[in-house]
Design a protein around this nucleic acid. Structure first.
Lengths: 210, 210
DNA sequence: GTCTATATCCTGATAGAC
DNA sequence: GTCTATCAGGATATAGAC
């Protein structure tokens, strides 16, 4: 990458960072290009040299959000035949809530639809699809390892899991922000949901009569 | 109620209805008082005779949303000792998604936080608290009827249920709207989630060893 | 009780000079 | 590559006439 391209990439990063800050403070719909420009030391029109429109900026934040979520949450998930599935999923859920708390702007765009007349473009959607595919693959591996019922439909399992994630993150974002998920109440909450999930889809379920 | 008060109440209803329409078309954050005034045949300043501010209008929609949700979803729920709990909860979940679909504006305000610098006032919150209390009471009754595990904490059960509701509604609202929940896919979805819920909290759970 | 008029400020976006 | 200048319009809210 040449020097100009590098400098350009840094500027783009700065713009995105400022936009994320504004969204974090006011809610995603409170994004204003004027405020973003002010924070990066530009005038509003200069932003258009880096982003075609306000929507394109939202697209980029959405895209980076899913990439960050994948790297921070999904990637570290290692399964082995003697994984404690309840503890594993409980930790995953807690991590997701913590992530949403510290990436409020991204999370709003990813799990809600807060901006009038904006929806993610197909290109911006790609990392999101990747995350879903990863989740399905993980559940399939868990099934192969004997951690899940032998007769489950992994697509159904992944969808149920997605509902749980969307539910806890939505509740977190719509309640006072910044309240850590790692305190006692939230941890027990996550553990209960994980236990519920495993009661139905886990190997020891009563439907599992070999 | 006197004639003037009646007329006033009708006008308020018309304003709220117009605001709900606008929000439904553009997303809750797209609410504009000018557009509302146009639709009810007023000028913008006249609205201030009925609502102190844009936020007050949001408050009222939020409040009416929870009241409508209570009347449409929670109220009809009759439990008897031989209720099929999975079917019961599956229907409840499907009804909640249908309700959110046909009350998009209310649902966005209730389950998300889409409007910059607005959060529901304590007074607007009252019906929401009522719904939660009703849910807890219902789960307590279900427990007494022997439909749930004898050792469950009803508060935990209600919270887990709230996560499921928030999850399915969030997913519905952030996907293309208007897609009915009653089609085959969504129904199976709801049934799977209800089965999961009952696997853990229902009477026949494996933890339930009298 | 509703209006006109206005205050004040912001928005996203474009054209073209430097 | 960033700026000034500007467009064309929007927003919420208030004051005061009718």
């Amino acid at each position: 990458m040449g020097k100009v391209a590098e400098r350009r990439a840094r500027t783009i990063d700065a713009i995105v960072a400022a936009a994320v800050d504004v969204m974090g403070e006011t809610g995603a719909a409170g994004l204003s290009l004027g405020e973003v420009a002010r924070r990066v030391g530009m005038r509003t029109p200069s932003l258009y040299g880096y982003f075609a429109s306000r929507s394109a900026l939202c697209d980029e934040i959405f895209r980076r959000g899913w990439m960050s979520y994948r790297d921070d949450i999904v990637a570290g998930a290692g399964l082995s035949p003697d994984t404690d599935v309840v503890a594993f999923l409980s930790d995953l859920l807690t991590a997701a809530v913590d992530w949403a708390n510290s990436h409020r702007a991204h999370a709003e765009l990813m799990f809600w639809r807060p901006i009038p007349h904006w929806q993610p473009s197909p290109e911006a959607f790609e990392p999101a699809i990747e995350v879903l595919a990863d989740a399905i693959a993980s559940f399939a591996r868990a099934k192969d390892l004997g951690l899940l019922r032998h007769d489950v439909d992994v697509d159904e399992v992944a969808q149920a899991w997605a509902v749980l994630v969307a539910g806890v993150i939505s509740q977190q974002l719509s309640n006072e922000p910044g309240v850590a998920a790692a305190d006692g109440r939230a941890s027990r909450h996550a553990a209960a949901l994980a236990a519920m999930f495993v009661a139905h889809y886990g190997r020891h379920s009563r439907e599992d009569t070999p």
